[in-house]
Design a protein around this nucleic acid. Structure first.
Lengths: 339, 339
DNA sequence: TTATCCAAAGAAAACGTTTGCAAAATGCTT
DNA sequence: AAGCATTTTGCAAACGTTTTCTTTGGATAA
């Protein structure tokens, strides 16, 4: 049926072992033989069977990507951009990426077990870790190579690539403060994600540092952004003591929030200033363009893949926890408060 | 090292073949044996080695996804949504998805060859086909199962899942016409993609049908949307005979275009109406919300995966070319022209 | 010339499954 | 109780590689 190493061996007049050695650039093989074998490979259009190869070598040249569970997360362009970075490095290192989706926690663990225990991948990249994450426990239990994109609260010493989200939120909040805002709210995301906690903490630190009020009722949760929460939001904004600016956990949430503000009769940046995080492509094209903290998403993905592949191939790892820099990008959505 | 079928056999007191048969739900095996084997599997925490399995069975339970080449395409949320649909079906059918990125045409073909000839996948989903697409030729040449998401101009009979993009553009244009617009432009995308051609054609048909002018100089190409094309765009819009509305090839392009209009001093929808395609999530949150043709992206991905997996498993295929319905979603970006 | 060494190539086992065929066990007739 | 049909199970080959161990053969040194 399909051309194997044996066919190549036959045509080149050598043994299968020799062909295999040519394939893996074995040093002790004569140039003449290499040429013969190479020619035969081209002539027959040979391509190695990766299944057979990894059966014996126990390496699949593949990394696994555990997909975010929720639709919102998955559809966030953040995710695409991170993937782009991951693919860029993986491709360059001749690795492929295996993905497997899940609709529930249960399915998620199953999919991961298929990957790990079925030996389909050499390592795993895990995105957006939760505060208590069973996936991490599973991975640790199997002693399987993996890298976190983000950080774990429970295990400080895992391989991970992350931003300093506390500092990022600190900077974002200070940007609003330096514009003259005194009453600054926070729009939150999924409460069980580590990144949510970190950014909230940075926001808090900045407020405390500037002796400004940190008020629980100015922290807008997910429920308030749904259709049902619209009333509560309007109510809050019509108080005389309403916030004049918000730090928003994420660009996509910012899009939705700006829209809601607009429908409640508040203009950005005239009535309310906004600064968010991630700097996805569309923030620049939005109306108004959104001020946001660029966390280098692509680079984040790239470095994560790099770290994982280093780990897999047993290269020495200089630094287990990588913290990449961020950069505030000021655009039209943040302005000094109206006097 | 890791637990194999032999270990299970030993513990259960049967032969490896029997274990294998239990694994694949072979009919002729006694309930008692099945129970014994199942227990042993649980006890040892057995998971089949997929590499070994697919080496002999020649099926990988994996489908390949050929990624779009350009950054813009990859980052388009359209892509995420389509992936979500693909994953949904694949997951349900117990298939995994292997992706492999490429930076150039050359790399793209290489990556695909690794997938096909390395027998890593059972079939391939190919997105966004070009007018003349070497990838399709390659796939055909190897007689490898694949499904197009979109359609091929050169091969009418391939398996594919698509919208009626001509009709979709026809509807979008007619929407603007019915609002009273007489001068309608078109904002195009990559000229070598089939979808671009189809939507342009639908736009043309609607104009001709309504006896409105179809003018080449009102068709805005990619180059005009870049920074350098800004001047040309402004120039065109300050003509007395300027278009009062545009059909835009794609939501993301629409975002950028609206931004450019805004910077040139034109408001949407007051000065210019916009209708685009895809209905990605953010169009609803945009300011103004964008009128767009919903083509059911998720469903598109879902059906594509379904068709491919049907093909792979040799199930009868009732219809080789699936055309899914679309639906115009009118939002704030399209309004009657100012009088 | 012969013994020694080293580079280069080959033989064969192994990786963890599936599966066709043969053997064993079971149940049914007589 | 033996013979036969049928169900259930086991044996062994195969899938396409890699890799350890051996063998081959030519070059070098004595």
């Amino acid at each position: 049926m399909s051309v194997t190493i044996k066919d190549v061996a036959r045509i080149a007049g050598v043994s299968p072992s020799t062909v295999s050695r040519v394939l893996s650039n074995h040093p002790k093989i004569s140039p003449a033989t290499v040429r013969k074998v190479r020619e035969a490979m081209v002539e027959l259009g040979y391509h190695p069977n990766i299944m057979a190869k990894s059966l014996v070598s126990k390496s699949t040249q593949t990394i696994g990507l555990v997909l975010p569970r929720s639709v919102e997360e998955f559809l966030n362009p953040f995710f695409s951009e991170v993937m782009r970075g991951i693919f860029a490095f993986a491709n360059q290192a001749q690795y492929d990426v295996l993905m497997s989706a899940a609709n529930s926690r249960q399915e998620e663990l199953e999919a991961m077990n298929r990957m790990i225990l079925g030996r389909r991948v050499d390592g795993i990249i895990m995105m957006a870790p939760r505060k208590k994450d069973p996936v991490i426990e599973q991975l640790l239990q199997h002693d399987f190579p993996f890298v976190l994109l983000g950080r774990s609260l429970e295990h400080e010493d895992l391989l991970c690539v992350n931003n300093d989200n506390i500092k990022a939120a600190f900077d974002a909040t200070n940007h609003l403060i330096s514009l003259g805002h005194k009453r600054i709210g926070f729009v939150s995301g999924s409460p069980d994600m580590v990144v949510t906690e970190d950014r909230l903490e940075g926001y808090r630190q900045a407020l405390v540092g500037a002796s400004l009020p940190y008020r629980k009722d100015w922290i807008i949760g997910e429920e308030m952004l749904q259709a049902g929460g619209f009333h509560a939001l309007s109510l809050m904004l019509t108080q005389p003591e309403r916030p004049t600016a918000f730090v928003v956990i994420d660009d996509v949430i910012a899009f939705g929030f700006i829209r809601q503000l607009y429908e409640a009769g508040f203009k950005v940046p005239d009535d309310v200033s906004i600064v968010s995080f991630n700097n996805i492509m569309l923030t620049e094209l939005s109306n108004p363009p959104i001020s946001t903290v660029d966390i280098g998403i692509y680079h984040l993905g790239y470095m994560t893949a790099q770290l994982l592949i280093r780990k897999i191939s047993g290269e020495p790892i200089v630094q287990n926890q990588l913290v990449l820099p961020h950069r505030l990008v000021v655009r039209g959505s943040s302005l000094h408060p109206r006097t």
